[in-house]
Amino acid sequence: MGLVVNQHKNSNPSMDFIEILGYKIRYVMFDCPEAKKTIVLLHGLGASAERWADLWPLLKKYNVIIPDLVGFGYSEKPLIEYTIDFFVRFLEEFFEKMQIRNPIVIGSSFGGQLALEYSLLHNDFFEKIILVSPAGTLEKPTYGLSQYIFSGLYPTFENIRSSFQMMANNDEYVVDEITVKDYMNRMRLPNAKYSLISTLLAMRKDQTLRKRLVEISRPTLVIWGRNDTTIPVENIEYFKEMPVVETVIMEECGHTPYVEKPTEFYQVIEKFIDS
């Protein structure tokens, strides 16, 4: 499968599978015995735990758990209707079975939308919430998002590299060849394209999130890349009205600042987590 879990150093990296809602789910975990805080990382649409790999080595002082969301990565991809409710139930059982209590959640793009949806149903579950260019506020797909979906449906090396380069929106950023090949391999797995499209339809059906942002009650940090063409930075304005929300715009970054500038990204989140 081309798993690349152990090439990034951290305390005790491990990969395993667990049954959630009857499906086989992969997760990556880093144990830090002296850690007082647990961080859960939720990847975006079509991604996997490896999308956070550049951040892994910087999270040494925390317990870290990164699931491949059901339907994505190397988790099982059932032929069912993927709805927001289904993903929330998935997280409920995952947190329960993994005995995760009061974690800090970091959600990117669709993972950010899921973190929000979950927290609005379970107000006191997360200690803090960090959202990176969260989905859920776009009225219609951007060209950058459309190209990413296209690369998932037609996963050639060139299509994927081009869409990842567009996602970064930075000529100096070099797309890692291993990342491209891993995405290409995953999108060729049985039912991978089905789960991508089914989830995308669920995201487009759920248009109520923007109105419910006022219900955010946990300390929340929203981070956006200034050059994001997938979900434009203007969407950060929707989050600025709540007193519990802090916002940060990272310069010279696109949709995934934790990939493009991991050290700078870590400094921003560490300050928020430890405050």
Score class of each variant (00 low, 15 high):
residue 3 L to R: 13
residue 3 L to H: 14
residue 6 N to E: 11
residue 12 N to P: 01
residue 13 P to L: 14
residue 16 D to W: 02
residue 16 D to F: 08
residue 22 G to W: 06
residue 24 K to Y: 05
residue 28 V to K: 02
residue 31 D to C: 06
residue 32 C to A: 13
residue 33 P to N: 02
residue 33 P to T: 02
residue 33 P to L: 00
residue 35 A to F: 03
residue 41 L to S: 03
residue 42 L to V: 12
residue 42 L to H: 05
residue 44 G to S: 09
residue 44 G to W: 04
residue 47 A to Y: 02
residue 47 A to H: 04
residue 47 A to G: 09
residue 50 E to T: 01
residue 51 R to W: 08
residue 54 D to N: 12
residue 65 I to N: 01
residue 68 D to T: 08
residue 70 V to I: 15
residue 71 G to T: 13
residue 71 G to I: 12
residue 75 S to T: 10
residue 77 K to W: 06
residue 79 L to M: 14
residue 89 R to H: 15
residue 94 F to K: 14
residue 96 E to T: 12
residue 99 Q to I: 09
residue 105 V to D: 01
residue 106 I to Q: 01
residue 107 G to N: 01
residue 107 G to Y: 05
residue 114 L to D: 09
residue 114 L to T: 00
residue 115 A to D: 07
residue 116 L to M: 13
residue 122 H to E: 07
residue 132 V to S: 05
residue 133 S to P: 08
residue 137 T to Y: 10
residue 138 L to N: 09
residue 138 L to Y: 02
residue 140 K to T: 13
residue 145 L to N: 14
residue 145 L to S: 11
residue 148 Y to M: 14
residue 151 S to C: 13
residue 152 G to V: 07
residue 152 G to Y: 07
residue 154 Y to R: 15
residue 161 R to E: 15
residue 162 S to F: 06
residue 163 S to M: 04
residue 163 S to N: 01
residue 164 F to D: 04
residue 166 M to N: 14
residue 167 M to Y: 00
residue 169 N to G: 03
residue 169 N to F: 04
residue 171 D to S: 14
residue 174 V to D: 07
residue 174 V to A: 12
residue 175 V to C: 03
residue 175 V to F: 05
residue 177 E to S: 12
residue 178 I to H: 03
residue 180 V to R: 05
residue 182 D to G: 03
residue 185 N to A: 02
residue 187 M to N: 05
residue 190 P to K: 06
residue 192 A to R: 05
residue 194 Y to C: 10
residue 199 T to A: 05
residue 199 T to E: 05
residue 202 A to Y: 01
residue 203 M to E: 12
residue 205 K to L: 14
residue 205 K to D: 15
residue 206 D to T: 02
residue 207 Q to N: 13
residue 209 L to K: 12
residue 210 R to P: 00
residue 211 K to C: 00
residue 212 R to G: 10
residue 214 V to D: 15
residue 215 E to F: 13
residue 218 R to Q: 15
residue 221 L to T: 10
residue 224 W to R: 11
residue 228 D to R: 13
residue 230 T to A: 02
residue 234 E to A: 10
residue 238 Y to W: 13
residue 242 M to A: 12
residue 250 M to D: 11
residue 250 M to E: 02
residue 255 H to A: 09
residue 257 P to M: 11
residue 258 Y to D: 08
residue 258 Y to A: 00
residue 260 E to C: 09
residue 261 K to P: 03
residue 261 K to T: 04
residue 261 K to R: 15
residue 264 E to L: 13
residue 264 E to Q: 13
residue 266 Y to R: 01
residue 267 Q to S: 13
residue 271 K to H: 09
residue 272 F to N: 05
residue 275 S to P: 12
